[in-house]
């Protein structure tokens, strides 16, 4: 029975991997920018699928609502408002492409050897799923300095964005009452 469940998870993992990598390649290669951003959305959703397979639904749902629900929408919105002829001039060069593929393979092999050599094999795989309440507790107790630093970085970046977006030369003539 457990063996069957294992096979099920393996096949889902394969399907999600094919979907994620395939749509990532499509996002790079498709000429239409809209379809490219849709493919990017599928890639990001596929990563959420990996998190679900790893028994981390909390992270998966944030992946969906932040990356697909906000960032991909932002990309889509920007793409819709630009005319791509004006910003891109095509450089078709097969040598660049092969060089890129070669570079990717070298990097992946390097990362792969590091991961395999890092004692990942000795990791426990059948441990209990960690509840999100436990994550919250850890964040507020052991990792609280890290949480405060993250909060400060995020709020300073929000304030910076507001300061950059606020333009002195544009007067707001619309009534706000």
């Amino acid at each position: 029975m457990a063996n069957g469940a294992q096979h099920m998870v393996d096949s889902i993992f394969l399907a999600v991997s094919v979907l994620t990598i395939g749509s990532a390649i499509a996002a790079l290669e498709i000429r239409s920018l809209i379809y490219g951003s849709i493919a990017l959305m599928i890639t990001l959703s596929g990563i959420a699928g990996f998190f679900l397979l790893l028994d981390a639904p909390f992270v998966a749902m944030f992946q969906l609502s932040v990356y697909v629900g906000s960032i991909a929408v932002l990309i889509l919105f920007t793409v819709m408002l630009v005319r791509r002829e004006l910003i891109f001039n095509k450089i078709e060069d097969s040598r660049r492409r092969y060089a890129g593929i070669g570079l990717m393979i070298i990097i992946m092999l390097g990362i792969g050897t590091i991961i395999i050599g890092s004692g990942l094999k000795t990791m426990e795989t059948n441990t209990q799923t960690i509840d999100y309440r436990k994550i919250g507790e850890d964040f507020l107790t052991y990792y609280s300095p890290a949480l405060i630093v993250m909060a400060l970085i995020l709020s300073s970046s929000v304030i910076g964005a507001l300061a950059l977006a606020k333009r002195e030369d544009v007067t707001n003539e619309q009534r706000t009452d």
Binding site: M41, M61, F62, L64, S65, V68, G69, V73, L76
Partner: peptide
């Protein structure tokens, strides 16, 4: 629920 609502604008 939040993740599902996020799909509507797209």
């Amino acid at each position: 629920v939040f993740a599902t609502i996020g799909f509507f604008p797209i």
